[in-house]
Amino acid sequence: MTTKPTDPRWIDEHGEEIDEDHRGLVYDIRTLVDRRLALGIFGGVGLTALLAACSSASPEPGASATGSASATATASPSASASAAASGPLAEVPDETGGPYPGDGSNGVNVLDDSGIVRSDIRSSFGSSTTVAEGVPLTIELTVRDAATGSALVGAGVYLWHCDRDGGYSLYSDGLANENYLRGVQETDAMGTVRFTSIYPACYAGRWPHIHFEVYSDVANAVASGPIVKTSQIALPAEVNDVVYATGGYESSVRNVSQVSLASDNVFGDDQGIHQIASMSGSVANGYTAALTIGV
């Protein structure tokens, strides 16, 4: 009698066969990972987070097993952050600072203004106190040495993005006297900065994004010193769709339907694979966009 060979898909790491009652979840997860790898992009959800989700406890009674982009995430994007060297990581691509940097390279320079070093960037400072409206967003950027993976402690990060209408403070019509949605911070012991902001719009021709520059320290940032890295953060499609369905983002609905990561003139070369933020949160409670970059 011939014995049917054991399907290698159902052999665990110990060489034992996975029984039929437990194959469903394993199959679903492996299929998802295979599809993500085939696309060459994880869409802002890290493989580590995916595996951690598989090993977590079952949902409480009444909780959704599938979830959605509008549901509050159960894990913090930066829960496993460490200052120690974690090994080499891909260097985030160099990208344009765009036409509205506010760093002195294209007209106005906000970096030498008193008040630019701050964590909450929703309001203007100085002669105006206008507050930008929109869905709350916390931006967590962790900066690491690409060669070693060690956290870059004490680096200066300048971050800026457009408002809910797609306008940039200091440049756009009606915003020349505003400087909101811009700020500088120093990375902490984990190499991380956290900015309190609002979810940016999608304006015509560009995928939703956030700009940033990394300096060796805050002193160099506010003095417009040498820039270590200029790049951009891409926001994932699933959350864009949820946010743009809320009031005030009406123009973004049309604009985001006419662009993709592949067609974007910044992220299109590799579909932003090293720049897509991991997201957690909800419209009601606000979102957190987290990204670790190598420089």
Rank of each mutant, 00 (worst) to 15 (best):
N177K: 01
S114T: 10
N240V: 04
A155Q: 11
V131E: 09
S197A: 00
G24W: 08
A53N: 11
Y158L: 12
V157F: 05
L111Q: 01
S78R: 06
L137W: 00
A289F: 12
A53E: 14
N220L: 04
V242A: 10
T6N: 07
V153C: 05
T192H: 05
A57T: 14
D145K: 00
S260D: 03
G167V: 01
Q258N: 11
S252R: 07
G268V: 03
T196N: 06
G40R: 01
G149N: 05
G43W: 09
H211P: 09
L111P: 01
Q258V: 01
E95R: 07
S56V: 04
A84E: 02
V157P: 07
I293W: 07
N255W: 00
T74F: 13
P136C: 13
A201D: 07
W10M: 04
S80F: 10
Y27I: 14
N285C: 03
R9V: 02
L51M: 14
S197G: 03
V218F: 08
V243K: 00
G126Q: 09
E186K: 12
S123M: 02
L111H: 04
S55I: 10
F267V: 01
T192W: 04
N109D: 15
G248V: 03
W10Q: 14
D264I: 05
R30L: 13
H211W: 09
L39E: 06
R23T: 00
Q232V: 14
D94Q: 15
V110C: 10
V214T: 02
P236H: 03
G134C: 06
V253M: 01
S127K: 14
T292I: 12
L137S: 10
R164C: 00
S280A: 08
G183C: 06
D103V: 11
G183T: 12
A155R: 12
A219F: 10
G167F: 12
G205H: 01
A49E: 15
Y100F: 08
S282T: 12
D217E: 06
V184T: 09
F267A: 03
A75H: 02
V143P: 10
V242F: 03
V153N: 13
D120S: 09
S76C: 00
G102P: 00
A71P: 07
A83F: 04
P5A: 09
R182D: 10
V135F: 03
V153Y: 11
Y27A: 15
R30M: 13
G87W: 08
I293H: 09
T74M: 08
A71K: 06
F267I: 00
D217P: 07
G104D: 11
G247P: 02
G44K: 02
A83E: 06
N240K: 02
R23A: 07
T196G: 01
A176K: 12
G24K: 04
I210H: 06
D163P: 01
T66P: 03
A155W: 00
V239P: 01
T246E: 05
T6R: 15
S114H: 12
A53T: 14
V193R: 00
S263Y: 04
